[in-house]
Design a protein around this nucleic acid. Sequence first.
DNA 1: CCAAAAGTGTTTCACTTACACCCATGA
DNA 2: TCATGGGTGTAAGTGAAACACTTTTGG
Lengths: 231, 231
Amino acid sequence: MSHAYEYERPALTVDCVIFGLDLEEESLKVMLIERDLEPFAGRWAIPGGFVRQGESLEAAALRELEEETGISDVFLEQLYTFGAPGRDPRGWIVSVAYYALVSPDKHHVTAATDARRAEWFTVTKLPSLAFDHNDIMRAALQRLRGKLAYAPIGFELLPRKFTIKQLQKLYEIVLGEKLDNRNFRKKIFSMDVLRELDEIQKGVPHRAARLYKFDERKYKQLMKQGMNFEL
Amino acid sequence: MSHAYEYERPALTVDCVIFGLDLEEESLKVMLIERDLEPFAGRWAIPGGFVRQGESLEAAALRELEEETGISDVFLEQLYTFGAPGRDPRGWIVSVAYYALVSPDKHHVTAATDARRAEWFTVTKLPSLAFDHNDIMRAALQRLRGKLAYAPIGFELLPRKFTIKQLQKLYEIVLGEKLDNRNFRKKIFSMDVLRELDEIQKGVPHRAARLYKFDERKYKQLMKQGMNFEL
DNA sequence: CCAAAAGTGTTTCACTTACACCCATGA
DNA sequence: TCATGGGTGTAAGTGAAACACTTTTGG
């Protein structure tokens, strides 16, 4: 590790897999951008862009997110860094991948500031993506599925006020398996991280469900006391 | 994402946290290198170096590992990428951190090819490290502890042939808590991923323990069938 | 009053935990 | 033969899984 300047330097990008939930059609979505330039013009890709000097990686990811989709203030976590030689035909480009979880409250979506098309795709029906973005997507899905079980990140995909059924649906959609509603309720209530609201669901043609929100304060408290979230 | 060349580029390094186990003194170790150049001359740091063009990140980490410590053929996994502005006073340097698990079979160690001092440190007694390497170390430890519980990576830290007691000790050392030996045995045997050898421990002044090895073949088989490793 | 989803209790079974003694070996 | 760690069985308790009916509301 002598001088930093003896070496060729890669270009550095961040790519951000943006997850959203469609509760109506009960599917997990990701936002993709249609490339207008070569290479891979016309192909869909994970939104991303170059990191600027003086900017942290996370800041770059947040900036790209905002610029390309108009989305801000979301859950964001670093995923993995992709640097295989040849992954980008333009040259040596290393990409730090992030994933974001966007609640339906914030699907202002498709509001890309530049002219590129941005669209939500159902994760089970993805087109073949540009670059090594299929790999990135695979990694992101694996991480989301894995982490959902032991970290309270699912709430980031729901509206701030949600019903237990919606929460259960979220788990069923992402994990791809049916869950027993009685057991699910017992488990989630036993963890004592939900705050029951005085409000109920509106506009449903049947009995309305009670609304809840995730009590982050209580969650952090319990974590300090050594509880562990698991679903 | 127009032209890759409009932007400043960071220098890219890999740093590799090397974990080893000392079964005699029952402690978890990491290998550190004493810096001979500014910045941080004389301080201890996580071994690492610049990524070369045409080289994958993992290949760079393996190369550095080999060059700096003489260690090869070990478990290696990407950890996290550190890119905070100002993390390196020499300029914009982004580092992809890896961690490696080295079995005592391979502690040829301290055989750094260049003149720098390399030494094993007990993780609970680390000096203050150069750059943001304290953060990297924290992340590596957290990952190791977390992953040990649900992935069979502990075996990477043991000799190829080991006793159940040694395996248990490993878990105790890394997780920092005593485990009940009867329950530990029951659990590990119930997972059916160990192959019992016809060999026993040598050179102990008491009853010799049976030796086992991790049966990776069987493990993969069971994983496909949906079993999940957990300790 | 009917359709549709919300919400609730109990039993069974498996797994985890806690705990103490005999066994085999080398010196 | 004794000291040292290796190795084993069982009972109690806890949590997960399986399962079906009653309640509420809007139309």
